[in-house]
Amino acid sequence: MTLRDRGKLKWQGAFFMPEHVKMPRDMKTDYHRQAKPIIDEYEIDEFDRRICYAMEFNLAVKLTCWYDGFNEDICGRIHYMDPINQEVRLVTEEEAAERVKFADIVAVSVIE
């Protein structure tokens, strides 16, 4: 009679609940989270000027947006500024429409 050895399988954990797997993953994302930067009214004025300049001359812009602790860069051309809904509508390089809230914008740079 031969002995059937399972190799490395016998040393692996037998059962992990989904909460046990999710907790280290959440800890890793929480570690890299950043606080939302405080933007004063002069910076908001400068963002507005850059957006209007890019709209007037049909230039591409790079908007840095803050979403839930992480910064995301969105590049494209400004299509419309909606003051009622407080958002900027832009068309990306992939011809997709994006809507960005004014409150989420952290930085604006014009790509010439």
Results as ranks from 00 to 15, higher is better:
91 V>T: 10
46 E>P: 01
78 I>E: 04
79 H>M: 01
86 Q>H: 15
98 E>H: 12
69 G>S: 00
75 C>I: 04
12 Q>W: 13
89 R>S: 02
70 F>E: 02
73 D>P: 02
18 P>H: 10
73 D>F: 05
63 L>A: 04
17 M>T: 15
105 I>V: 05
102 F>E: 04
69 G>D: 03
43 E>P: 01
50 R>T: 00
90 L>A: 05
35 A>C: 07
23 M>K: 15
23 M>D: 10
76 G>C: 01
97 A>C: 11
83 P>V: 01
59 L>P: 06
67 Y>Q: 05
39 I>A: 05
42 Y>W: 12
20 H>S: 11
36 K>I: 10
50 R>Q: 01
8 K>L: 15
81 M>C: 01
8 K>G: 15
59 L>G: 09
19 E>R: 14
23 M>E: 13
23 M>G: 05
50 R>M: 04
38 I>S: 11
23 M>W: 12
5 D>R: 08
37 P>F: 13
95 E>W: 00
105 I>F: 03
20 H>W: 14
8 K>Q: 15
14 A>C: 09
24 P>M: 10
75 C>W: 03
86 Q>T: 09
67 Y>E: 09
64 T>K: 07
47 F>N: 01
87 E>H: 05
11 W>L: 15
83 P>F: 12
41 E>C: 11
21 V>G: 11
11 W>N: 14
64 T>V: 04
77 R>Y: 00
76 G>T: 03
87 E>K: 04
63 L>V: 05
28 K>L: 07
32 H>L: 13
60 A>R: 08
79 H>P: 01
49 R>E: 02
76 G>H: 00
75 C>S: 03
29 T>Q: 04
79 H>K: 00
91 V>A: 04
97 A>E: 07
38 I>D: 13
73 D>K: 01
5 D>M: 06
35 A>D: 12
